[in-house]
Amino acid sequence: MDNGEIIQLTEITKTYRVGESEVHALDGLSLSIREGDLLAIMGPSGSGKSTLMNILGCLDVSDSGQYLLRGTEVSEMDEDELSEIRNREIGFVFQMFNLLPRMSVLRNVELPLAYAGAPWRKRRQAARDALEQVGLGHRTQHKPTELSGGERQRVAIARALVNRPAIVLADEPTGNLDSKTGEEIMKLLVELNKQGRTLVIVTHDEYVAGHANRIIRLKDGRIQD
């Protein structure tokens, strides 16, 4: 394993069975990600991008193949171990924001720390810091529904950062935003990467592609070269 390599995927397959037919969402995919990378994943709809992200994010496990995260084999883990990995090592940013609507922004951002069992005071401080970092330090007590789409996505980014994860995964983070707001979000993500954060973004955005140090293009569950 190279120095600085945090993720190593080898011959990953994921097959969905829909009725009689099988869909090979991932078909023998291999990939490695190094610390500090900004990896852009591109490809047409249905090419397996989200499936790949779910596996990278330990939300799902592959049918076969090897996934080493910081040298640990993930494929063999049980659900609770995966939860712990997600909690400590992964930060998610979704297309749909996926905030909890009844909780304040601050509480949303605190939640990963609550599941990590962090003491209350530390949670609060870390959540404030993360919100500060995405430029929402003044909106802590609002409910997500009171915020614009761009602001919501910033909250989601703060939540992804709050646990200081090894890697942040963003699956079409601007898919539900207008282009101007989307651009701001992308700038924020690129900025975070420049500060040293490892980032994987599924996107069609050329700006991100321009800043990515690697781009992979998926088609039918394989990387095209």
Partner: peptide, 16 residues
């Protein structure tokens, strides 16, 4: 259901 998915995605275990 979606809320449960979100909570799990950010690290909630079964017992949580």
């Amino acid at each position: 259901t979606r809320e449960i998915g979100i909570r799990k995605a950010i690290g909630a275990k079964r017992r949580h």
